[in-house]
Computed example of a mutant assay.
Amino acid sequence: MSDSLTPEPPLELIVFDEWPDAVRTLFDGSSLASKKGFTASLLTVDTNGHVRTSLLGVGELYAPDSRTLCIALWPQARAVRAMAQSGRAALTFVCDEAFYQVQLRVTPLMAVKGDDSGLAYLIGSIDTGEAQSVRYARLTGGITFELEGEGRAVLDRWERQIEHLKQAAAAAKR
Rank of each mutant, 00 (worst) to 15 (best):
P9N: 10
I14T: 15
F16Y: 11
F16E: 05
W19T: 02
P20M: 05
T25D: 14
L26E: 09
S30H: 11
L32E: 03
A33R: 14
S34F: 06
G37S: 11
S41W: 05
L43K: 03
T44P: 04
T47S: 11
N48H: 14
R52T: 00
R52W: 01
S54Y: 04
L55V: 09
G57E: 12
G59R: 03
E60A: 13
P64K: 08
P64Q: 07
I71R: 01
W74Q: 11
Q76H: 15
R81G: 12
A84T: 08
A84N: 15
Q85G: 06
A89G: 04
A89D: 01
A89C: 06
V94K: 08
V94H: 08
C95H: 09
Q103N: 14
L104K: 10
V106T: 04
A111G: 06
V112Y: 05
V112S: 05
V112Q: 01
G114P: 09
D115A: 06
L119N: 02
A120S: 10
L122T: 00
S125I: 05
E130L: 15
Q132W: 13
S133W: 11
V134P: 00
V134R: 15
A137H: 15
L139N: 03
T140I: 12
G149L: 10
E150N: 15
E150W: 12
G151I: 10
A153T: 11
Q161F: 10
I162L: 03
L165T: 02
Q167V: 00
Q167K: 14
A168I: 08
A171M: 10
A171K: 10
A172G: 04
A172H: 14
R174V: 06
